[in-house]
Write a protein that binds this DNA or RNA. Structure first.
Lengths: 158, 158
DNA sequence: TGGTTATCGTTTCAAAAGAAACGAAAGTCA
DNA sequence: TGACTTTCGTTTCTTTTGAAACGATAACCA
């Protein structure tokens, strides 16, 4: 009957999910309100901010989104004129995705808000505290990296 | 063009989501594989571990699940015989949910695995590091608590 | 070279999600 | 009392999700 001592609100996986869900939901108001973007569309767009030409596969790998989600997000962003899709020249299977001017303008409008949101969020956390926090995050990831049943960690974006 | 320096993989909300998604997905294998539980069903069940009789509303409040999700998870768990639903005596609107013996057995089987998963996850993190980590988590929550647009934080389970 | 295998992006399809509306049961208050 | 409001859990309805299958292209290799 030992399970009676189990406390959900102190269970680390739940705590991580709770914080992440709260932050994500609040953040999505930031880019969803004015620009009607979903989480997937936001991630696709900001990934494009740093890399001029990418494939679906690359976004899938770097932004922790499964292939169908990327495919759909890219199609929607194309339909709204924020990016363009072209057939690959070298490899015909690949699709070359790049930002349009409208996409660049949208990014230029959203990114400062997103950064301000992050700054506000961490306003009471000192740089040392954040370093230590992130080092714990890294340790948790490392354990999962060694677990064959865990999803692989996306590579760092450059 | 300042957005070109934006790096998704260093953006805190994304880092939180990435870690949480990786942990949750791996954990769900633990209780999903043998017992076929969804995240919502798992949360409902472990909330019941500590409180004998609860309502849908209470689970909704404490386990960070919206009402339809709780309602459906409870119905499925009832269909599988892990819990029972009874009409409230005092307040006829409330539903009194309690574990069955089968539910208790399932909990007794799953909770040790879940705790072992957590122990394994934090194996390389010292108690002090975890305390500091959780204090940063708390600081981030506090900022959201002051934000009227953020979802309210669920109260601590006792 | 030709046959097999792997990878690309899309689509299918069944299940899950969640905002909104709902009926039913309390609570409020003139 | 009786109208109005609030809260409970469920259901409706549309959208999203994601595993699996798919056709198309490229890579491998005997």
């Amino acid at each position: 009957m030992d399970y009676a001592t189990f406390n959900l609100s102190e269970y680390l996986p739940y705590r991580l999910a709770l914080l992440s869900e709260r932050v994500s939901r609040r953040l999505s108001l930031e880019y969803g309100k004015d620009h009607g973007l979903s989480v997937a569309e936001w991630r696709v767009l900001v990934h494009l901010a740093r890399s001029e030409e990418v494939s679906i596969r690359e976004i899938h790998t770097f932004a922790n989104l499964d292939k169908p989600r990327v495919s759909r997000a890219v199609s929607r962003l194309e339909a709204e004129g924020l990016l363009r899709k072209e057939g690959g020249k070298e490899d015909q299977r690949l699709i070359v995705i790049s930002l349009t001017d409208k996409g660049r303008k949208t990014l230029a409008a959203i990114v400062p808000d997103a950064l301000a949101f992050e700054s506000n969020l961490v306003q009471t956390v000192s740089p040392q505290e954040m370093d230590q926090f992130l080092s714990v995050v890294e340790k948790l990831h490392k354990v999962l990296d060694d677990d064959p049943l865990a999803a692989p960690r996306p590579p760092l974006d450059q």
